[in-house]
Design a protein around this nucleic acid. Structure first.
Lengths: 255, 255
DNA sequence: CGGTCGCTTGATAATCGTCAATTGATGTGG
DNA sequence: CCACATCAATTGACGATTATCAAGCGACCG
């Protein structure tokens, strides 16, 4: 974990490390302001942590490259991944209420982030109404995402969860940059299972099934979705697992 | 659903409908500002909706009395409750990103709320740095809660979920006001099941079991927790369901 | 008084977790 | 460079947690 301070002089005079890595929908003026409050970039190896649950909340982090997971810790050593982050996403937003990080933030692969002191963010925000609205929007977006995840975890079956996840990743990819043929998942089966409330084995079986059915090409971590329509059907209507003996064909009951 | 406008003249000169119903940890000066932006109070009967998923995001709502549920809608008519709200809680905070409500907000019982135009909130917030920090804190708190709920939905067993829920309600009650002997749940078994990702029947069985074991008194919607320690054990270590044949006593295997 | 609603309880079954064995990839040290 | 260990992933067999289906009961309401 190497930290590279960004000298004050440097800021906003040279091309900034964050340039082209800021969240979308940001006006030029705001980009300026934001790069001014970044103090360092940090490089992390796979498995290294940016923040620990319960630690003092001093920085927000912008993912420049790589990917991260946010891990909720529970009793008895249990834990669950509650969010994944990729480039241009802001991490740490749930810390404002307690002034503590509420999850661990851990790199899924070699990654680079940009570090923003909370103090400086708050000053910049009270000086600029647009910036306030942006920050509020980001936290609110996180809340919206978390509540959708609650729905996913509580109301969908295993095949529906996987389909939902893959479709979301694809939509993300589409919004960011072009995606020629497919994409690479940054997480292991176990991590994906943790996020979806399933086991590694279930994830593996379902991905194999998707492959066998020709819905997607799955090669290790590489995924190419072949039949968007079928995947949407998986998500919205569910499917029979290959494991299931047989679909219940509800025979007419005698009245 | 009756709406009662609060005349401009009236505001901050008379006792305000929101007084004593504002969120905790609010300075006197902020209370003043907040009551100034409230435009109406609204009375709702059980089942009436304050907001519909996808509708334009014009107001935040403060619960004055009663209780609400936030309902996420999914494909094929599925839905799940993602949050319950009681007095002094702010509803609608997930709407800032899309400028649309992301859930339905529906009254669980006859209730009263105070209505705040988003526009006015944002003006007040840019004028007052403390108010900004408060609002940010509330949204961030919501995010923290939702991520805890993700953990609950994805990582806990049915008995653990119920125990977790009851302990949270009790902690809430303790923070707000005194609680003599127990409390009344504002939601049906079905609504609680929706929130916890379980069915009505499972909720009913587990509450009966808690009663039978002497962990809590359960009488319809009224709950009195008798053994905090046992309930915490339910939450942290899990228990055997009464339905389960037998706990797997892992016999020593021959090597 | 009939009907709906909320709730309880029982019987059955299916989804998905657990346990186990295997394979291939990666990396490390002798 | 190869043996060895470790880790990610796949696949199978089995079982338990929890959903589904069903029946019944009391309360409340029009």
């Amino acid at each position: 974990m190497k930290r590279h301070p960004i000298p004050l002089l440097y800021r906003s005079q040279h091309p900034h490390p964050c340039d082209d890595h800021l969240p979308p929908d940001l006006h030029a003026g705001l980009q300026q302001r934001i790069t001014e409050v970044a103090t360092s970039t940090v490089e992390l190896a796979r498995g290294e942590n940016l923040a620990h649950s319960g630690a003092a909340f001093h920085h927000l982090y912008l993912v420049v490259s790589g990917a991260f997971k946010a891990v909720q810790l529970g009793a008895e050593g249990r834990s669950q991944i509650v969010c994944f982050y990729g480039p241009r996403e802001l991490m740490g937003l749930s810390g404002f209420s307690q002034r503590r990080y509420t999850t661990d933030l851990s790199a899924l692969m070699p990654s680079v982030v940009c570090e923003f002191p909370v103090q400086a963010i708050e000053s910049a925000v009270s000086a600029d109404r647009l910036l306030l609205e942006r920050l509020l929007t980001y936290v609110s977006e996180g809340l919206e995402r978390a509540e959708q995840d609650q729905f996913m975890l509580g109301s969908l079956t295993a095949p529906q969860k996987i389909a939902c996840f893959l479709l979301r990743v694809q939509a993300m990819r589409r919004r960011i940059g072009g995606d020629a043929n497919g994409f690479d998942l940054p997480m292991t089966r176990e991590e994906l299972g943790s996020y979806l409330g399933l086991t590694m084995e279930t994830i593996s079986r379902l991905l194999s099934h998707l492959h066998a059915q020709g819905v997607a090409r799955i090669d290790k971590r590489h995924v190419q979705i072949l039949r968007d329509d079928l995947l949407q059907a998986w998500r919205d209507e569910g499917v029979d697992l290959p494991l299931s003996k047989r679909k219940k064909s509800p025979e007419l009951r005698v009245a």
